[in-house]
Simulated scan of single mutants.
Amino acid sequence: MKFLHMRHRGLLLLALVLAVLPLVLPNAFYVDVAIRIALNAIVVIALNLLMGYTGQISIGHAGFYGLGAYASAALTTHFNWPPLAALAAGAAATGLLAWLMARPILKLKGHTLAMATLGLGIIISIVINNESQWTGGPDGMSVPAFTLAGMTIAGETSWYVVAAVLLLLMTWLALNLIDSPVGRALQAIHGSEIAARVAGVDTTKFKVRVFVLSAVVASIAGSISAHYIGFITPGMAGFFHSIELVTMVVVGGMASVFGSIIGAALLTILPQLLQTFEGWEVVVFGVILMATMIFMPKGLVPSIAQRLRSRRKGNN
């Protein structure tokens, strides 16, 4: 109960930070970075449910992100669909694809599972590149503004509210899922799939469901990002974006919802800060990641929390 209470205190703290943040950020550039952090964090939280809590590796989730973005772009541009309907259609199509692929893919384990998800992501990226009549091909395409009930969401302030509310909602859903029987089943699968089966857990069903959930969330975030940015390219569905998402999970902390947010924040801000190194930013970025993995192998948030608990025990 105490741990549950701490989690909900964390949610209240996150809500407070999100409420205060736009008041202290100096200009629109920083608000834009905050929006991108929130959208990345939404995807990373869902991916952490799959990787950190269930123990299933996926390095192709940028493909689902790209599907959502391009579904919204294509349906609103070529067929004049309302943006919300396009977003829902993209999420439904992505969920269906993830469900169809989940059963054969999730039978694999370890590096073979990673390669299968990588292959799925690469296939999605290739399709987006080749279907230029619908996607604009390698040049990308423009995305219409997001309108809802005759109102257009425009400007950093409005988009910040949307991103902050969605991040809070995703965090609340993830925390409640983890504390539910479903969450305990997912963690049992991570601990030992054989033991979970012996205990009566339908491991295939739960793995498929969390895979589909993480894919749908990635699709929705991709759609929102597409309308916010206003222009998309196939790179958002590419391999390197998938690696970025996985790195955010690992650096922030596996099996840590708030670690996902910290990881997304750090790895969204770092490229901006490292631009001053003029060509060496990738090297510095790699050194930071290596240092994190060497000295904090569980990720930032779990490692810091463990050290704080150890100090308290030592003081007592």
Rank of each mutant, 00 (worst) to 15 (best):
M1V: 13
L4Y: 13
M6R: 14
M6V: 12
R7A: 08
H8V: 13
H8M: 15
G10K: 12
L13W: 13
L16Q: 05
A19K: 04
A19D: 02
V20K: 03
L21Q: 04
L21S: 09
V24S: 01
F29R: 15
Y30H: 13
A38H: 08
V44G: 07
A46R: 03
G52S: 05
T54A: 15
G55P: 02
I57T: 12
G60T: 04
A62K: 03
A62D: 04
G63Y: 01
G63P: 03
F64N: 07
F64R: 06
Y65E: 04
L67Y: 08
H78M: 12
H78G: 02
F79G: 06
A93V: 09
T94N: 02
L96G: 07
R103Y: 11
K109R: 15
K109A: 13
K109L: 08
M115G: 09
A116H: 09
L118G: 08
L118H: 04
I122M: 14
I126D: 13
V127Y: 11
T135H: 04
A145S: 14
F146N: 10
F146H: 06
A149R: 07
S158E: 14
S158K: 14
Y160P: 02
V162Q: 03
A163L: 02
L167G: 05
L167Q: 07
A174V: 00
A174M: 06
L177M: 09
D179R: 14
D179N: 14
R184L: 13
L186Y: 06
A188F: 01
I189R: 01
H190P: 00
A196V: 04
R197L: 11
R197P: 05
R197A: 13
R197E: 15
V198R: 12
A199P: 05
V208D: 11
S214C: 07
V216L: 07
S225D: 12
S225C: 09
H227M: 10
Y228L: 06
I229S: 10
G230L: 10
I232Q: 01
G238E: 14
V249K: 01
M254L: 15
F258P: 00
F258R: 04
G263A: 02
L266A: 09
T268A: 05
I269H: 01
P271Y: 03
F277C: 06
W280Y: 15
E281C: 03
V284L: 11
G286A: 07
G286V: 04
M290V: 14
T292L: 09
I294G: 09
M296N: 01
G299M: 00
S303I: 00
Q306H: 08
R307N: 10
R309F: 00
S310V: 11
R312P: 03
K313R: 15
N316M: 13
N316G: 12
